[in-house]
Design a protein around this nucleic acid. Structure first.
Length: 301
DNA sequence: GACCAGGGCCGTC
DNA sequence: GACGGCCATGGT
């Protein structure tokens, strides 16, 4: 077993591992106590989280677990995980510099202060895509449960520290799953969307490489060649996997925030409202502001 | 039993 | 391009 630690004090803006992993932006980590991510609570503050990486065909799956305790991120893994954690958790993002570019109106300031150290994640494309296809009309806890079920049923297994772990299924494996098999995992009407999008990726007919590098507006449109992906899911994948930090997914919570705090930003269509709230959130890093607001509103009761 | 959840697809206008 | 009906499912 490999292990290491990362001093949180060395990170500009620090880190809140629990808020980062339980804020509904990634569904690829699981808490060792098995609790779903329906609500954040104090007991999870120093819990172990684990994930399986190298889920694609050209690498063996590796297990990484991490926890935040005493000013450190401690990790244990089947391989060296320092750079992997830095990439996945965007530990090089300079949070103070980012918030310098985000307006500090009362809502944004409260959300920032409530979850200092919350970072946008950088998830692998295919698992992120599937997660957010599954997210349609679904609560955070159940989206997480669906991804756990997909891994359990169709993912590669790997042994670590006496336990068996499951990686996220490959595009090819999900493309070969039947719609009924996916429905049995509780995916409902999303089942054919997941299967057809997996086919597109597995065949190479549409991949992340068709999106990466495009400017934001073209990237959001290109994402919608995947099945089950409209404007909102496209924005989520752009933000949480492809590094488009200006993307502002307009979900029900953000729509509520617009109605309550930014009524002038309501423009009728997704595109125009999205542009307006992106401007209100400071443009370049608006997705950071969005994720703080989402997590803040969803947890304040 | 209605209502809601990190919406998208499809037919119609 | 805008709009409505429809799509599963479990929790409150």
């Amino acid at each position: 077993m490999d292990s290491g630690s990362i001093p949180v004090g060395d990170l500009s803006g620090g880190l809140d591992l629990q808020a980062t992993l339980e804020s509904g932006q990634t569904f690829l980590w699981r808490r060792e106590d098995g609790r779903a991510y329906e609500t954040a609570d104090a007991t999870g503050g120093s819990a172990w989280y684990y994930t399986v990486v190298g889920w694609n065909d050209d690498a063996d799956p590796e297990v990484v677990r991490a926890r935040q305790r005493d000013g450190m991120v401690e990790w244990e893994a089947t391989t060296d995980a320092d750079s992997l954690l830095a990439d996945r958790l965007r530990l090089d993002d300079d949070l103070p510099a980012i918030f310098d570019r985000i307006p500090d109106d009362p809502l944004l300031a409260d959300a920032r202060d409530a979850y200092r150290g919350l970072r946008i994640v950088d998830d692998p494309f295919f698992p992120c895509l599937v997660s957010f296809i599954c997210s349609a009309q679904m609560r955070v806890g159940r989206i997480h449960g669906m991804q756990t079920a997909l891994a359990r049923e169709f993912g590669e297994t790997v042994r670590f520290d006496g336990e068996t772990y499951h990686g996220f299924p490959t595009p090819d494996r999900l493309a070969r799953a039947t719609e009924d098999e996916l429905r049995e995992l509780g995916l409902g009407y999303r089942a054919p969307y997941v299967r057809r999008s997996a086919e597109l990726v597995a065949s190479g007919e549409a991949t992340s490489e068709d999106v990466r590098g495009l400017d934001y507006a073209d990237a959001r449109e290109a994402m919608q060649t995947f099945v089950g992906v409209g404007d909102k899911v496209a924005d989520c994948v752009l933000l949480f996997s492809l590094g488009y930090l200006e993307a502002v997914p307009l979900d029900t919570w953000i729509q509520t925030a617009i109605a309550d705090y930014y009524p002038d930003c309501e423009k009728g269509s997704y595109a125009e409202t999205s542009d307006a709230i992106r401007a209100a959130f400071g443009g370049e890093f608006a997705g950071y502001a969005q994720t703080y607001v989402f997590h803040y509103l969803r947890n304040r009761g």
